[in-house]
Design a protein around this nucleic acid. Structure first.
Length: 275
DNA sequence: AGTGTCGCCTGAATGC
DNA sequence: TGCATTCAGGCGACAC
C-alpha cells in the first residue's frame, strides 16, 4: 500500500526513467479512476516534455516544459506506474492509462481503482482542493517535536495513531508506518493524541523520520499491492516489528503482538513494550 | 468544526 | 470443487 516511502521510490524511478522524455500519445481504457480523467488529455499532453517530477504527500507531480500544466497522480491503495518497452501491448485488465513516450510506455495499473490521474495548473497547486489542506512533510527539517506537540495539543478526542495518519496534520504516514513508528516510540496507539508529553513527541518525530528514511533506502515495502516502476519489490517489509505480525512474538520482549481496529483500520502493537 | 463511520473496489484468503 | 464471506486500506462523502 503506497505510503510516503513507496511514493518516493516511484517518484525517484520516474526521474531516472522518464525525465526529459516527450509525450507522444495518451490512451485511456476507461473514463475514470477515483475521478474522471481530464477531457482531451491527449491534446493537453501530446508533444509536451516532462521537465520536473516531484512528490508532495502521497501525490506525484509531473511538470511539463512547454506550459504550466502539471500531471497529478495518486496511487490510492493498489495503483502502480509501470515502465514498459515501446512495443509492449500485452495489457493487463487493470491497465487503465497508457502514456506513449519516446521509446517506452508509462502505464497506470490499478486493480482497486482508488487511484487518481488529473491535470492542474502549477500556479493553482497551493489552493487546489487536493493540496490546500495537506499537513507538514515529515522529512522536512522544520518538522520537529515542538511542532508535533503543537499539532496534537487540541486533539483530545482522537487517538495518536489516527492523528499521525491524518493528512491534514502530517502527510505520507499510512497504516504501516503509523504502527511501526508508534512501536519504536513505545507509545500505545490508543493513547489520546493530546496526552503525549513533549519528550514523547520528540521521540515519535525522530522515529517517524527514521523509519520513513530507512524504508526509502530499501525501496519501500512490498505487500500485495505495491511494486516500483520496473516491477521490482521493496524490502522494508522484512523489517516490520509489528505490522502484519499478529500473534507472532515481539522482537523486543517476546510477548505476542496484538491487534485492534481503530477508525476502521487494523492496528498492530505490543502491549508490553508500548505504554 | 471536529470526529467517526461507511463505501468505493478487486483479489487473496478463508469458510462451509 | 465452488460459491460466499471476509479482509486489506487511502480517502471522500456523509452523519452527528
Amino acid at each position: 500500500m503506497p505510503e510516503l516511502p513507496e511514493v518516493e521510490t516511484v517518484k525517484r524511478a520516474l526521474v531516472d526513467n522518464i525525465l526529459d522524455n516527450q509525450i507522444f500519445s495518451v490512451k485511456a481504457f476507461r473514463k475514470n479512476l477515483r475521478y474522471d480523467f481530464p477531457v482531451n488529455m491527449d491534446k493537453i499532453l501530446n508533444n509536451r516534455t516532462i521537465s520536473k517530477i516531484e512528490r508532495r504527500a502521497k501525490y506525484i507531480l509531473i511538470y511539463l516544459k512547454e506550459d504550466d500544466n502539471v500531471i497529478v497522480i495518486h496511487l490510492g491503495m493498489s495503483g502502480k506506474l509501470l515502465i514498459k518497452p515501446f512495443e509492449y501491448n500485452n495489457y493487463d485488465k487493470h491497465d487503465h492509462l497508457v502514456i506513449g513516450l519516446e521509446d517506452k510506455k508509462l502505464i497506470f495499473n490499478d486493480p482497486r481503482r482508488f487511484g487518481l490521474f488529473t491535470i492542474i495548473k502549477s500556479s493553482e497547486i497551493a489552493k487546489h482542493k487536493l493540496f490546500a489542506n495537506l499537513g507538514i512533510e515529515p522529512l522536512e527539517s522544520n518538522f520537529g517535536g515542538n511542532m508535533l506537540l503543537d499539532l496534537l495539543k487540541n486533539k483530545a478526542k482522537t487517538n495518536i495513531k489516527n492523528a499521525i495518519m491524518d493528512q491534514s496534520l502530517i502527510v505520507g504516514v499510512g497504516n504501516i508506518y503509523a504502527c511501526e513508528s508508534l512501536f519504536l516510540s513505545k507509545i500505545m496507539p490508543t493513547r489520546i493524541a493530546s496526552s503525549l508529553s513533549p519528550q514523547e513527541c520528540n521521540i515519535l518525530v525522530l522515529n517517524i523520520k527514521q523509519i520513513l528514511g530507512d524504508a526509502i533506502k530499501l525501496g519501500g515495502s512490498t505487500l500485495k499491492d505495491y511494486a516500483s516502476v520496473n516491477g521490482n519489490s521493496g524490502y522494508f517489509q522484512n523489517n516490520f516489528f509489528v505490522y502484519g505480525r499478529y500473534n507472532l512474538p515481539c522482537n523486543i520482549c517476546n510477548n505476542h503482538i496484538k491487534k485492534v481496529k481503530q477508525n476502521g483500520r487494523t492496528t498492530f502493537y505490543c502491549d508490553h513494550c508500548q505504554k
